[in-house]
Amino acid sequence: MKHRLLFTGKKLIRMVLLLLGVSLAAFLLMSASPLDPLQTNVGQAALGTMSQEQIAKLEDYWGVNTPPAERYLGWLGDFVRGDMGTSLLYRQPVSTVIGQRLQNSLWLMAFAWVISGVLGLTLGVIAGANRGRLADKLIRGYCLLISSTPAFWLALLLLVIFSVWLGLFPIGLSVPIGADASSVTLADRLYHAFLPALTLSITGVANITMHTREKMADIMESDYVLFARAGGESAPSIVLRHGLRNVALPAITLQFASIIEIFGGSVLVEQVFSYPGLGQAAVSAGLGSDLPLLLGITVVSAAIVFGGNLIADLLYGVVDPKIRRGAAKR
């Protein structure tokens, strides 16, 4: 038990260091930007009509005159205490904005994550077990097509077909327009999240399938599968008893590694469907030079990604007795 804790502790420390690095890198990139936040958000015309004091006030608000090092340390100090600053665009605490947006996005991403994982694993196992046959060729063709398709274009296509032509689904937003927060039902939410989630699932499948297929094909060529086949075991039983068990480890890695892709996809898809999620907030923060919000979103998304990797590392030990005992020896 002790070595597991030690292992977890080491991973946690590495994760904290990486997060620190992410925040510093993001901060440096943003402060290197030559874009003037006043020009971007207030506009040249409005600035021209303002008095010197007003401009100075605005510069103060957007933090133009504070040196970067001071700003970063200030931000970091607040962040450790749980205060992520105030979003300049939404005029709310960053943690509130992220909390609200994440709630919307989480529906979407969790749905797409589960669907693409299950579907990807199934398709990958089928293709790998039937390598070279028709099923494999079809699945591979589908994967090549999907991995060459930009997520936002697929979203546009689905939007045109299902919302504009067939009129089956709403064009955007996460809840009906003008409805009270209290009158929004679960059905409404699902109805509005369906198309974005479908897009994300379709695009997420390709990568998982291709990698699972490769692993599965390797397993099918191994000696133990040959032995089982010689012993007269049927193909489905080989896949279930030998294939799935051995493909489990890479499948876990793939499943947790796909979080980052789903997040990236959600940024684009939310933009197309004007779905008020975290990704859309990231885009408006980026376009509007809303430094605290963009920094917060970057750190939160990186934390989700690293957290996923950590869970995958811990699950290895749970799933694979070899790793469990190997770690015990050391």
Binding site: G21, L29, G264, S301
Partner: peptide, 25 residues
């Protein structure tokens, strides 16, 4: 290796956004 982990931890699209911001869009 740490840098590799770092860059791989930020969603691609966010990173591209951040870098293109740094260069002035």
């Amino acid at each position: 290796s740490w840098c590799i982990d770092l860059v791989m931890g930020i969603p691609h699209i966010l990173l591209v956004m951040l870098i293109s911001l740094a260069f002035g869009k």
